[in-house]
Design a protein around this nucleic acid. Structure first.
Lengths: 155, 155
DNA sequence: GCTGAAAGTAAGTTTCG
DNA sequence: CGAAACTTACTTTCAGC
């Protein structure tokens, strides 16, 4: 799809605050209500906007203990990979999971309340997964930046 | 703040789809319109819900090349840390930045279009930052899970 | 693809049980 | 906490450019 500068601005605005009304967006973009409305619809229809979500304060819901858990599999057969990925996706503590290059195969971003819960997660859930070889945990000391906005200048 | 089971369910629903009407939420929770309305307001007022955002498809806006960039600082004086964190927060390619334990001081999650853009980012932006010692890039091969929902069972 | 106006619908407030 | 009536505001459609 062809996205012009207005679409990019619109995406930026909606990523910053999705609860803005069409009218508010229209003022900021210097267009009419309807024009903006149709552009938003198009972005949704084409799947460029995949959905809308509420941003929850991790501290306030007691999930501020964040760990990057690096995992190596024992063997990389197609079946092992499939099984591992399926199981890991089902764990609620695992916020994100990426297949990566380098020393380890996967990086998991795990959100729990505290070290005790992380220990429980490791002992009762992670080690239950099949095909797990080595793991290496990196603990988050502080969050410097976590943007909900993907920069979309130059296409 | 005291959050009961209903609040947690409500947060889950709003994280899954923030565009649901109060009425739709009320049906799913088995309560009245007003009750849900006031709970949402309370969650917003208390900052448990920090805001609402549109979820943009990275592939479709040409930002599917994701790299975890590990960074070590040369010296960890208070001033160096402050300067580094301030500068890195200003880079649009840096989606997330965490201060972490382990071999490296920081993990950056960088979103660009392709390897060429990543090279440009490294050469023209990252190495311009002060106090940077060593860096180590881990490339994302595949995204297994990226949840917008923080699991909030047991408080 | 844009504008402006009109019709339809939902949000938000208030009052009462 | 829930129901109903009410006010306001936004969404969605349409004719016309």
């Amino acid at each position: 799809m062809e996205m012009d500068q207005t679409d990019k601005q619109l995406l930026h605005l909606l990523q910053s605050d999705a609860k803005q009304t069409t009218k508010e967006l229209a003022v900021q973009l210097g267009m009419s209500n309807t024009a903006v409305y149709e552009r938003v619809r198009k972005l949704e229809r084409e799947g460029i906007i995949k959905g809308y979500t509420a941003i929850v304060d991790r501290e306030k819901v007691n999930r501020s203990f964040v760990v990057f858990c690096n995992i190596r599999l024992t063997q990389h057969t197609r079946e092992n990979v499939r099984e591992f990925e399926e199981e890991v996706a089902g764990l609620t503590e695992v916020q994100e999971c990426y297949h990566v290059s380098g020393d380890y195969d996967y990086i998991l971003k795990v959100h729990v309340a505290n070290m005790e819960d992380y220990r429980n997660f490791m002992v009762t859930k992670l080690t239950d997964l099949k095909h797990i070889g080595n793991t290496h945990s990196i603990f988050m000391i502080g969050e410097v930046k976590h943007s909900t906005v993907i920069g979309i200048d130059r296409s």
